[in-house]
Design a protein around this nucleic acid. Sequence first.
DNA 1: GTTGACAGGCGTACACCGTACACCTAACGT
DNA 2: ACGTTAGGTGTACGGTGTACGCCTGTCAAC
Lengths: 237, 237
Amino acid sequence: MGVRTLTDGVVRRTPLSRDRVLRAAVDLADVVGIEALSMRRLAQELGVVPMALYKHVANKDELVDGMVDVVLGEIEPADPTPDWQAAVRRRLLSAREAVLRHPWARKAIESRTRRTPMVLGYMDSLAGMFRAGGFSADLTHHVMHALGNRMWGFSPELFEEARDPDAPPPAVEEQEAMAAEFGRRFPHILEIATVATQGDLSGVGGGCDEQFEFEFALDVLLDGFERLRVQGWTSRR
Amino acid sequence: MGVRTLTDGVVRRTPLSRDRVLRAAVDLADVVGIEALSMRRLAQELGVVPMALYKHVANKDELVDGMVDVVLGEIEPADPTPDWQAAVRRRLLSAREAVLRHPWARKAIESRTRRTPMVLGYMDSLAGMFRAGGFSADLTHHVMHALGNRMWGFSPELFEEARDPDAPPPAVEEQEAMAAEFGRRFPHILEIATVATQGDLSGVGGGCDEQFEFEFALDVLLDGFERLRVQGWTSRR
DNA sequence: GTTGACAGGCGTACACCGTACACCTAACGT
DNA sequence: ACGTTAGGTGTACGGTGTACGCCTGTCAAC
């Protein structure tokens, strides 16, 4: 025991803290992905026994909640602008940047159900931007719902690339046969993919410019919102 | 062993099949929720050993894919209408009904990454409705992305009710104190909730009419789409 | 100083999960 | 009559989250 005391006196770990745990979790998830993030793995990364984490985090769900809060903390604060549309747009693109820095954040946000103060704070400030832009509380409410997950800076990936990266590209003839069969069954999707990739079908679905899609949808929504606002839209009740 | 043969001859289970497995999984998930659905539990429900399932389903992911396909099979097929907007609207509301019948479907669809033929078929037919309505392949592409998960008939729940149902309602004074604190930190959300619930704050967030929110957002999008269509919108490339 | 509370890290243990692998058997085409 | 095979069985492995009790270093109060 004396020995332990001695070495303890020399090398002392910086003690854990909720903050250190969350940061480590974020860093780990950035590297290995959210599905490979386990309490055990995280503990190992921190040079600590798994149960030690539970002194700082109630359970894994709360850990993920905290991780989301960390990401949200990276979003630039709202800046006051007379043009609500530009302001909201800028804010959401900033949120998008934060989310894109952490590939796991999308899934984490989608799966979360608890609304932490951080989450509420963000939503509140966003709602405030609409209010300041002249939206009624009523309209603001529905507009927030209409934004949905896009208020976190992402839209669902319709064609998430499930391509196995180290699988060899299939033979040309086989590829053509599959394309033919595909085109017979799903002609419109083929057509869309052809247009989107300018004819290069070698990675159907992987060729979507997600940033463009996000801004496209966002602008459709914001324009629609503005139209409703100027015409004094109100839910009849 | 003779005994076994004898009883086997008398009571013979109807054999498993991929279809029976999927249906049982859907029914089970309807009752216990998707997170309580395990291969073991499902096998038990079917009166079979867990590994037996793997003769009909490659793994759990594929099982869930199949379950989603079952739900998608409940969506009413497209009906040809000159009015693309009404047709799409009707279709998505039908999809919504199917998804609402299976509370787990939302999460399952969100988490799925593989696009089964059934999924592709649905997306293809939806894209076809836009094409038939006069949308260019280009615009159809982006419009599908903009729909996002709403094409499956649901939008993200911003305020999923995390309320513990058997927790006793807090004392009135305590509730008021919390409301006061809440209002100080999140004034706009409080405001919105007040409007949405007509002053009854006894279940903030739980009072949203999801159906209304879905249709509201959908209409904003569809109207925006129509506007882009008539003005001949095209992505400059 | 001594002591006692306590915050925080440790170790063990449990129940559950998905699924690889070997086996056994009933049904069927030849 | 017989080999093949589809489909259900049993066992086992490595992983998960986390409940519970212990042990120790720190620090406030006496």
